[in-house]
């Protein structure tokens, strides 16, 4: 990686408030558990059977990582939940994780980042649209779904427009000046709604900090007219 620490590449992952899921890819299964832990099972095929040979179990805040090799390295068949950590598991902090696991950690973090970008944190119903500020703050994604079928998806670097006709495109700086009045009005409403969502998020954050460590998110304001 050419870097001296994992922290210089990425921040610890954060699975707070994410709903459980178990997602299989070609070589691994990544799970968000009920506890908020993130679990990665690495698979190897043996006698036409997929076996879990290595597990990384990462705490919800991303700072504690257990590594273990189930069944003393022989692995277990893949089932619907990760193997429990044995007593002889290896235990690391984010900053002490050996470099050979960095890529695996980054893989888990990439998955969590994707899920955060699709998980609503603040939902705000306006007169014309449902505006959702996602969990991937800072610079969280925003999806503004207009009741007439149009949709605007803002990420930190692109704006995607789906017109009510279904025509879709990505907006770039040079195109902003060529937009029709209609599309511009959708964009204006999306930007205004985005600002309201950020303001609501900030206000709720303030209240949350006064409370007893219970998250007030996700939160919904208003309802569809």
């Amino acid at each position: 990686f050419g870097s001296s620490t994992l922290r210089s590449i990425i921040s610890p992952l954060n699975a707070e408030r994410l709903k459980p899921i178990r997602q299989k890819t070609k070589n691994a299964v990544v799970s968000i558990l009920e506890s908020g832990e993130v679990c990665m099972e690495f698979l190897k095929e043996q006698n036409s059977q997929e076996r879990v040979k290595e597990v990384l179990r990462i705490s919800c805040d991303g700072n504690l990582i257990y590594v273990y090799h189930p069944n003393e390295g022989k692995g277990f068949p893949l089932v619907d939940r990760p193997p429990s950590p044995p007593e002889n598991r290896l235990s690391y902090t984010f900053d002490s994780l050996p470099e050979k696991y960095w890529k695996k950690y980054q893989y888990a973090a990439k998955f969590i980042k994707l899920v955060r970008s699709k998980t609503p944190k603040v939902t705000y119903y306006t007169r014309y649209a449902k505006c959702m500020l996602m969990e991937n703050s800072p610079t969280a994604d925003v999806e503004v779904c207009f009741y007439d079928g149009a949709k605007i998806h803002k990420t930190s670097d692109v704006i995607r427009v789906i017109e009510k006709s279904g025509r879709s495109y990505t907006l770039e700086g040079s195109r902003l000046s060529t937009l029709s009045d209609e599309v511009r009005s959708y964009l204006d409403h999306a930007n205004e709604s985005h600002c309201v969502c950020l303001s609501l998020e900030s206000a709720i954050n303030t209240e949350e900090k006064k409370g007893e460590n219970i998250s007030l998110f996700p939160i919904t304001f208003g309802r569809r007219p």
Binding site: K19, I21, N27, V30, F42, K103, M132
Partner: peptide, 26 residues
């Protein structure tokens, strides 16, 4: 552990994302 060509997206993940939306309205 070849993770380079791993792709998360599939129907299962899409269904999960849809369930995250409040009131089931896209």
């Amino acid at each position: 552990d070849d993770l380079d060509d791993e792709e998360f997206y599939d129907d299962h993940l899409e269904a999960y994302f849809k369930k995250l939306l409040p009131h089931g309205m896209q």
